[in-house]
Amino acid sequence: MTKVCVVSGSARGLGAAIAERMSEAGYAVVGLDLGYPEDRDLSTLPDEAKPGVYPVHGDISDRDAVLKLVAVVNERLGGPHVVVNNAAWIHYALLPDVEEEVLDRMIAIGIKGMVWLSQGAAKAMGDDGGSIINITSITSTTGFPRATMYGALKGAGASMTRQLAVELAPNGIRVNAVAPGFVPTPGSLDVVDAAGVDRRQSRTPLRLATPLDIANAVAFLASDQAGAITGQTLVVDGGLTVSL
């Protein structure tokens, strides 16, 4: 049987790498992102789960849309067996420059979206078990200039990982997180200039992680090899946090 994985924020960057890696691992991957063409809706999902990436245009912050997505995936493909909460909106700002509209959207995507997809997935998984993997960040535990709001959101995701791991364990559902350091993706390069990239590289003992490094960590946590691991955060940052 082909297992099913749902990945949010999968149109580019880390999400795209995760979706592709999980497809290579044999999953039928349903990707949810506003970056996909609008004609890629639920009707375009296949009637049988086969390995591959199937994009769906949608807003992770829309609870009704997310719950409907999970229900259709469950009815048509079975599952999901794995959910990856990757969607986020990266925005750095000093405290005096934080704008309410921006913060509201960050919360809608980074926290509410994680809740809605986890909520739908837990119901669909039932007592059959499964894996929920949240993409957090080293900013959840380490202070960086201009990252207060982003770090707070990722800290919420890290806390949610621990709480849900306990709550959902009786159903055999494992909940873990991957916390990347700086990864040069289109999204991160929108907010970090070349000098910032060089500075992060110079402070990293090993090397900057790539999207594939993060995707490999997700694939491990989703696999049977991690069958006794829950409530944990796997840091993938080239050794940056241990060197600070």
Rank of each mutant, 00 (worst) to 15 (best):
M106L: 12
D47H: 13
E75D: 14
T148V: 07
A25G: 03
K123H: 13
L208I: 10
D97H: 09
E20S: 13
D47M: 08
N74E: 14
M22C: 12
I109V: 15
L45A: 01
G227E: 06
R40I: 05
W89L: 15
L164K: 01
G26Q: 09
L153Y: 06
V73Y: 08
L117G: 00
H57Q: 07
V83C: 06
L95Y: 13
H57V: 11
I138A: 11
P96Y: 07
E75A: 13
G126C: 04
F220N: 07
R200Q: 15
P51Q: 01
G110M: 12
L103D: 05
D33I: 12
S118V: 13
L240H: 06
D213W: 10
S223A: 00
G187P: 03
S118G: 09
L34S: 09
A25H: 05
I111W: 08
L168H: 02
T136K: 02
L94H: 05
L95V: 15
V4Q: 00
I107F: 11
A158W: 02
V4G: 00
C5M: 09
G35M: 09
G187Q: 15
A121E: 11
G26W: 10
V235W: 03
V82T: 09
E48W: 03
Q163G: 15
S23Q: 14
A209V: 12
V7I: 05
K123T: 14
H91D: 14
P51I: 10
S188M: 11
I60Y: 02
R207M: 09
T44C: 10
I60Q: 11
T141E: 08
P96K: 13
T139P: 01
R40M: 14
T2L: 02
I135T: 03
R162I: 05
S131C: 15
A195V: 09
G130F: 01
V30E: 05
D64W: 08
V73H: 00
E167P: 00
I90D: 10
L208K: 04
A165F: 01
D190I: 04
T233R: 04
Y54H: 12
L164N: 03
V218E: 00
R63C: 14
D104R: 12
N134K: 07
G238L: 04
R105K: 15
W89A: 08
V218P: 00
